[in-house]
Design a protein around this nucleic acid. Structure first.
Lengths: 341, 341
DNA sequence: ACGTTTGGGCCAATCGTTTGGGTAGGATGT
DNA sequence: ACATCCTACCCAAACGATTGGCCCAAACGT
């Protein structure tokens, strides 16, 4: 059997063993190369380093954080991790964080203001250095409060007010979809627009509507239905949109999952996605390509969004000036969008 | 503007303000009700409590952890958070953790041993109290090492050796599928079996194969194809299984996503899921019901698995005896499984 | 009347690191 | 020969909370 329940090896362990003072060991093991050289003689440095990794020394992060008032922790709030879009963004965040020696706490809020509040407090209670919100409400009121409290943070996926963010250029994405559908001859399009408080849905919808307007076509309010960003949400919204004497010839769902729900709703009405009604999604999640009728969608750089989000936060923490970024989307045409009859 | 960059309010802040000693304040604010009563007079307790939440006192977790050698942190390792199954399990873990005042670190390992090692060390370096692995290899060698090091942990989703785990009863799930397919008259079934190192795929496959054997039918080795647990994985494996003069009449994919990939592969061969070949998945993810051909699948209690996993770990940390649990799966019959022609 | 409780707190050490100052002894400069 | 400067370390005070003791005064027991 091995050493059950670890004997903690600390700076003192090493210092005593070597007949040195802990401060010397600390400097050698920690300070940047230049300083650690002037902290001790080369032979001493060598002895310390050797013993340290012989004993498998790992600095106690609680002690360090207590002393330095820096935790190297960042808190991440997302609506739902079981939403593949946010999960992927988080993967990007986590990857980048690990590269920079940071660790992340992530929590679900279900887009519920109540939960946003309690989870934020929880995370702040853990003394994170900064936060990343993936669940911003456009109004940004809650975020204003957080800013008041002096917590550095950035947004990913969604924008809100003037808070720094990394998003997909959703407006452009919407325009791309519009152009595609216009080319296919669709003059009557409906939008499954997502939650009314999320900039993603709002901007994607606005992009499409604006481009249609420029083409001389209007998208009336009753062709736009809000919905949750998941399969049942898209299903329900589409069902409502179809409940009319003259159904649209194309449906733009601002999210792939909602699009899958839309396809389900169409099926229930005896309509086939692609053949009878064009369907376009958003995000290009891995399923889109494999659906029985492969889904036309807009690819958004989810992983990069996460990575960039963390980098932005890092710069913010260094006190450097930061600017929001919009990453470029790309239209992916597949079988679900066919010309208007 | 508010108080930029928080003035930290500590026990001392409160103690000084009230002319008390920090130890008194600590006891009042922390100890269980019975102790906190004998720590100070009721009026003092009242004064302390009032001031504490007036100032918004939050204990510094680093100081506490340093002193108590307990971090109230748990580390969670999963193959991929963008896999909805693991993401959902994690949601359960995180929910339960929050209820118990614990925070979680989660990291992706991509099922790569190299990453498992480095991420585990990272997490241990953060001084977690315990860990939860969702990416166990059946052989369990790496986990044996972790156990040697004295780190308390439990497994979720997959089993390995004798390490405590909370899983779905995958073997039973496989049997349920077999029974269903047998009833439908399928004598020739193929299995998209998942990764060979994951107990989930192994047990689900074994359950089906055993049940078929009991029915006097054998499932030969060339009807079983290993695969990744995602859409492309299922697609590729199914393509291989179909590359034979006499294709099977039913396909059991041990994961819904692999099943979606299977449906794609069938489509590429001009075969329709449901109509031409029965397809059954596993997990009952939210998409299953909404697919153009709704997917027959086995519902596994993912959220509960996470919650129970955390509870098990908690018991382990308390030093109580723990036992692995297998949660009950349920067959959900939908349109993708039709009788054999 | 005097020893014993008990109520209500105070003391101080400790957890492991970091960091602004020493300091002793030798080398250097002039 | 004497001031000065390195070199190579050591000292000690934090950071904020916990916890086993200790202590004083009032109340109680007999």
């Amino acid at each position: 059997m091995g050493t059950k329940r670890a004997r903690p090896v600390t700076l003192r362990t090493i210092a005593d063993e070597l007949g040195l003072h802990v401060s010397t060991v600390s400097r050698v093991l920690h300070a940047k190369p230049d300083e650690s050289l002037r902290a001790a003689s080369t032979t001493t440095v060598e002895r310390i380093r050797r013993l340290a990794d012989e004993l498998g020394y790992q600095p106690n992060p609680h002690a360090t954080s207590l002393r330095t008032r820096r935790s190297n922790l960042v808190g991440v709030l997302v609506p739902r991790l079981s939403d593949i879009v946010l999960a992927t963004i988080y993967e990007g965040i986590e990857e980048a964080a690990a590269e920079h020696g940071l660790s992340t706490f992530v929590a679900n809020t279900g887009d519920q203001p109540e939960a946003q509040r309690t989870r934020t407090n929880m995370v702040i209670g853990r003394r994170v250095d900064g936060m990343i919100f993936g669940d911003a409400y456009v109004d940004g009121r809650f975020l204003d409060e957080v800013a008041e409290r002096g917590i550095p943070f950035v947004l990913v996926s969604r924008t809100a007010g003037a808070h720094p963010s990394v998003t997909c250029d959703d407006y452009l994405g919407g325009r791309l979809v519009a152009e595609h559908l216009l080319e296919l001859g669709h003059r009557d399009v409906a939008v499954v627009a997502g939650e009314p408080y999320a900039s993603t849905g709002i901007d994607r919808t606005a992009g499409l509507v604006d481009r249609y307007r420029e083409a001389g076509l209007s998208v009336p309010a009753d062709r736009i239905a809000h919905s949750r960003f998941d399969v049942p949400g898209g299903h329900a919204a589409t069902a409502r949109l179809l409940d009319t004497p003259n159904p649209p010839t194309a449906v733009f769902a601002v999210n792939d999952f909602a699009a899958i729900g839309a396809i389900g709703a169409l099926r229930n009405q005896g309509l086939r996605a692609g053949a009878d009604v064009a369907v376009v999604g958003f995000n290009d999640t891995p399923l889109a390509a494999e659906l029985p009728v492969p889904l036309t969608t807009v690819r958004s750089p989810m992983l990069d969004m996460g990575r960039e989000g963390l980098r932005l936060l890092l710069r913010l923490l260094e006190g450097e000036p930061v600017e929001s970024r919009r990453l470029r989307p790309e239209l992916i045409v597949r079988a679900s969008s066919t010309p208007s009859p």
